[in-house]
Design a protein around this nucleic acid. Structure first.
Lengths: 193, 193
DNA sequence: ATAAAGCCTTGACTAAAATCAATGCTTTTT
DNA sequence: AAAAAGCATTGATTTTAGTCAAGGCTTTAT
């Protein structure tokens, strides 16, 4: 049920059997149907979600109703409106399933208790957020310093899974483009081969 | 000498006098002249720098020789090529001083030793990287979902210090724009008042 | 089986940013 | 004090992305 979660955990910080049992008490399973929300803006984000199976997206909606995807989440990834989760303020992001998904949730109280009682959990959390930071930094660097073609090529080589499972208009949103522009970029890339 | 560092630390995780003395053994003071490098691309980043005084910038240089600033650093901030620091691979970023600066450096071995020996240091590190992640997430969201005017207005309200101390062409680089475009945006904003 | 919705691409046109050049003021260097 | 460099702005032109509309294919719903 939480196979990928513990696989991921053990890769970063090896756990004893007892520690795994202990942590398992804090995990909550959740299934989402395609398009079902995990979080809607305005609600407080009360859990961190580890993705065992499926694909999710995290996005904001602007004043004109346009969706801006800031993150996809696939198997092995963590997804949450972290600011809302940590501060208790209403979420500014929405999170929903792009395809059917199975999650392992950790509530805020569980998170805080694990941080206090299990040093390995703090290390696991620090390593996770460090990895997320570095990925976002690469992405930001790509945005401000490379062409759209280079950015798309980089994205597809880094995340071939996402490109295959996610509609193109969502990839465009994630990149900050319109679907028409992404289509033209894809044509330019393929005609340059 | 490390006044701001400990002020910042104690705000996040209160330290005893003994713990402060213990940590102080691991800190290295460093002064930079204006334009002096802390890090050059190609070298391995061996320290994390905490800024006691002054201003720095972290940037990459593309194939055409254009500089792309991904981060400024002022008093109280942390700056590093974190990927290089953690992996030992050559840095892809440069870091230099925009104005004269005083830093508190932590080497990789000191960092690792403190993580192992002082749980409060791990908490301090986790909170720092979490804050950095959230700041970058807001910035990314701003980039992919708002206009250039909104982004500049947001940036100047969030970081009035930076705008006052840093040349406009560097702000333009940080935003992923040309200096001419930034100048026109500033004119549009001021004429809309 | 058929209708509706979703998705993707393309064309034509508009808007915004980049490029290039020039000017002028301020700061730094000699 | 004078020259050089740095910085910022503006104009004209080019390039790139966005907008709007349309067409066609695939998937989903009835």
């Amino acid at each position: 049920m939480y196979e990928l979660f513990f696989q991921n955990f053990n890769k970063k910080v090896p756990l004893t059997q007892e520690e795994e049992v202990y942590i398992k008490n804090y995990l909550l399973p959740k299934k989402l149907r395609k398009k079902q929300y995990l979080l809607q803006e305005g609600d407080v984000c009360k859990t961190i979600a580890f993705i065992e199976k499926g694909a999710l997206r995290e996005y904001s909606v602007d004043d004109s109703g346009n969706e801006h995807i800031i993150q996809f989440g696939l198997e092995g990834w963590v997804i949450s409106d972290l600011y809302s989760f940590l501060t208790g303020e209403p979420a500014t992001y929405n999170i929903d399933a792009i395809e059917e998904a199975e999650l392992a949730l950790i509530s805020k109280s569980a998170h805080e208790e694990l941080l206090l009682k299990l040093p390995k959990y703090e290390t696991f959390t620090r390593l996770n957020i460090t990895g997320a930071y570095l990925a976002m930094q690469r992405r930001l660097t790509s945005i401000i310093s490379t062409s759209l073609e280079e950015r798309y090529t980089y994205f597809t080589s880094l995340y071939p899974n996402i490109v295959q499972r996610v509609p193109q208009h969502m990839v465009a949103s994630y990149m900050g483009l319109t679907p028409e522009t992404l289509s033209r970029i894809r044509r330019r890339i393929s005609s340059n081969k």
